[in-house]
Amino acid sequence: MARFTTSDGLSLHYEDEGDTGAQAVLCLAGLTRNTRDFNFVAPHLRDCRLIRMDYRGRGLSDRDADCMNYNIVREAQDAVELLDHLGLKRVVLIGTSRGGLIAMALSLSHAERLAGVVLNDIGPEVSAEGIARIMDYVGKTPDLPDLDTAAERLKAVHASDFPGVPLERWRAQAEAMFEERAGGGLALRYDPELRRALVGQAGAGQGPDLWTLFDHLSQTPLAVIRGANSDLLSEATLEKMAARHPGLIARTVPDRGHVPFLDEEESLAAIRAVLEQAK
């Protein structure tokens, strides 16, 4: 584990594992997630230099006094500053949900830094249903006594979109998302002010055209992984993405919603295909 300081003075946590001479892979997590988002795929990428970063306000990184800095543009800049800190010119980027949006933003501002991109259950169109589900939980601490109970709740809530996932996997997921308080109960592993940032940014008007950003990936080796039961990335959107990017590697993971864990056979095949093209 290590830290670096951003250009605006925040200390951000990152992890850098593997041979420094191997293909560098930068992993960017979901909206409220952290470096643990990639614990399941990490054992499958031991031949790579695996780099993970906690966004500002998430995981072990500093919280920002101005929550409006919890935005994709600033987080993309933080990612570039991490690459500069490590002396890396180009990486393969695996972006889960929010991380995929950051990858698309980087395709416009720093395309030369992207040797390849894997988008995990995210695209240029995000369903209203998925956004509503996210806003239903962001910034809210679950009223649960411990991680074991949280694991049981996750398993029950996701029984239909993640059928057959064992409780031990949900226990690991719960530990990645929450921490137990000394006096009992759970705490979020991110700044709850993230919710206020999302609400404020939504009220600021229409954001950038994500299809335009996606089109800037046309010359980049690209894979999209979709959970078959996803409520955020539809099958129709994935088809449109494939039509606009003829070289797109598209894989749908059965029995997964938003988001696949990335250690599924289909996910690993997509990641490996991009790594091969990025050589």
Rank of each mutant, 00 (worst) to 15 (best):
D47W: 11
C48E: 08
L50H: 01
L50T: 00
D54P: 03
R56G: 02
A65T: 14
C67N: 10
N69V: 05
N71L: 10
N71I: 08
I72W: 10
R74P: 05
E75W: 04
A76W: 00
V80C: 13
D84S: 09
H85G: 07
L88A: 02
L93C: 09
I94D: 00
G95M: 07
T96L: 05
S97D: 09
G100E: 01
I102Q: 10
A105S: 11
L106D: 06
L108N: 11
L108R: 15
H110S: 13
E112S: 13
E112W: 07
L114E: 04
L119A: 04
D121A: 10
I122V: 15
E125A: 13
V126W: 07
S127G: 08
A128G: 07
G139R: 01
T141I: 07
P142T: 00
L144G: 00
P145T: 00
D146Y: 04
L147Q: 02
D148S: 07
T149L: 03
E152K: 15
R153F: 14
R153M: 15
K155V: 07
A156S: 15
H158N: 15
S160D: 15
F162Y: 14
G164N: 13
G164I: 14
V165P: 04
L167A: 11
Q173H: 13
A182E: 00
A182V: 00
